[in-house]
Amino acid sequence: MSTVEKITQLSHRIFNTSANEQNTSRTSNPFAVSNFQKNILTEDVFESSKAKEAKNVSFTGNLSAGSKRIYSTFVGSLSDLGSKFYEGIENIVAFSRKVWDGVVNTWNKIQEIGNKEINLEGAKNVLNKEISLDGAKNVLSMDITSLFAKPKEREIAKMAKMDPHSEVKPMLKEALSALEADMTAAA
């Protein structure tokens, strides 16, 4: 049997333990009746300690040179598995680093935007240049504070445009008469 065949057989036995176990009936095995769903270990777990001592088990001594090669091959394959596992970890680490870098870049960008002064002067100039319609220009150059003026100021501004004699004078006379009436009533 070649080494490759032996490895195949061994790996087959390792990963398919139940398939190759024999359904052996042993009188010394009390669990043989229940049969463990027909998966009985070939090794006799009730082997006496004396027998073990007699065997004098050695991990190296009883192994043949061929077996050593087989096991070393198997161990080698396991170490390959380990390297693959480490490669996986490295990928995770790289991914985490990429995410972290992304977070740091975003944070730096936010700080950069926060430190910049927003200047609308340029936009205003562009608007003034582009729009040629006088009406629209007037709207843009209009003092927006007038839109938020108090009712009193709005009223004064409105009356300031009226004719003093024909419009304002009667209003003043009327208001003054009402005020004098109030004062007389209060007295």
Binding site: E155, I156, M159, L172, A178, L179
Partner: peptide, 18 residues
């Protein structure tokens, strides 16, 4: 007084009336 405020507003408007 409400009427005094009205008189005051009219006088102020006459102050700035062109």
């Amino acid at each position: 007084n409400k009427n005094f405020n009205k008189v005051s507003n009219i006088i102020e408007s006459l102050a700035i009336n062109p």
